[in-house]
Design a protein around this nucleic acid. Sequence first.
RNA 1: GUGAUUGUAGCUCAGUUGGUUAGAGCAUCAGAUUGUGGUUCUGAGGGUCGCGGGUUCGAAUCCCGUCAUUCACCCCA
Length: 458
Amino acid sequence: MKPSLPQGTRDFGPDVVRKRQYILNTIRSVFDLYGYQPLETPALENLDTLLGKYGDEGDKLIFKILNNGLDHPSKKEQARTEFEHVLDGKNSKAVTERALKYDLTIPFARYVAMNYGQLYFPFKRYQIQPVWRADRPQKGRYREFYQCDADVIGSKSLWNEAELAQIYHEVFTKLKLDAYQLSINSRKILSGLAEISGGLHKMTDITITIDKLDKIGLEKVKEDLEYKGLTKGEINVIEHYLNISGSNEEKISELKKLLETSETGSEGIKELEFLKSLVSEHDPSMKMHVDLTLARGLNYYTGIIFEVKAPPEVKIGSIGGGGRYDDLTGLFGVPNVPGVGISFGVDRIYDVLEELNLFPENLITSSKVLFFNLGDEESKIAFQLLQQLRSRGISSELYPETVKMDKQFKYAEKKHIPYVVIIGSREMETGECILKNIETGKQQTMISYDLLEHMMEL
RNA sequence: GUGAUUGUAGCUCAGUUGGUUAGAGCAUCAGAUUGUGGUUCUGAGGGUCGCGGGUUCGAAUCCCGUCAUUCACCCCA
């Protein structure tokens, strides 16, 4: 048979894994530095845990797992009738009760709800794991991809938002992706806008529509809003809102006037101002721009929301996002636990770094030294030296077969091994070895005992 | 879910209005070279042209279906 991969999944070869690890290690080290604790949850969750948390679209994209044993004779009839329900678009526990996790936030909320008594708050956790979505793959979109989440749960303080923004800044700076764009907005502002335009019940419709502004333009947005049942007057208010522009300060002062009648909206503005002041006082170089059209799809957000975009020349969309949710664990029976979190999309960050050529050069080396194998007796000496080098932390290897030097050279070259050590019959007699630099082609003969010292100096 | 795109050797791709035995480069292997690679030269292996059906004397080429790929929309990291 011809082997193939499931749609939207990938194998990662050695070089790719090194680059991915570079990203993952960078993120992990920053999480550790800021006092977050690691957590892992299963790939599988009960379908109930996930369903209804991501909106209707999200539900469709959850990978559901077929129950085992449906073909058992005693269950066959029941399975058949239950399948009928599934074909009608309903979910049946008799057919599928587990699913692959869709993100890291909901499983985390489930974990917190289950372990509420044992945890100390505020609880700061990070989580680096794959998630799965049954989306059609395309550029920057995969069916299996990694998320790196950091969340603080059990604290309402905006200091958390400031810290998370700082984490974004630190990670992307370390990755040399200085041109990243961090946008912020507040769900409270959006809900204030809904209050003064279409009414609070229209908030989802309004936010989904204005989120598309930069894609479809103002006219289409207005058409769309009209189609969704807003009056001319209400649309005018929204247009006014969308026309707010200028610096962050200008936007905020304009907003204040517009939303002064809305208590929630005003609160959102205050929070935004406070966050801005915390961040810019601490690190003026850090840019964070207020984007009033930013909405974010997941409907559990309630306060500040974040989104990170790649530099505009890379057309890949968002490489990270997050926000505050006031009652995520309420879904699992533990109400009133506020939280805020952010996420990094590693796979997209990889694509961006690749496209902009931002990976460091030195990620690809494997061993530092290859010992040639020119016979069993010769290799015994090589083996001793090899272990000496290894014991001093110099990664090295012996070519396992006695084959032509030509082949061994090519092996070293392909694996990017910078040095080879040649010990043949002549060297064996004199107790010497040849150390050759593959890149420069220069070589030197030395007493075998000196090899270690030599290598330590390089 | 909707709309396009592409599918030929391990990889990247040629292949004329349908015409005999489907080609090239890279890679692999062997030799020139029994202790010095990355350059060069010679040779070799490797293909059910995605799969199934149809039109035709004849199909990689045209038609239908199907699967896979890539891209866009929706939505998202």
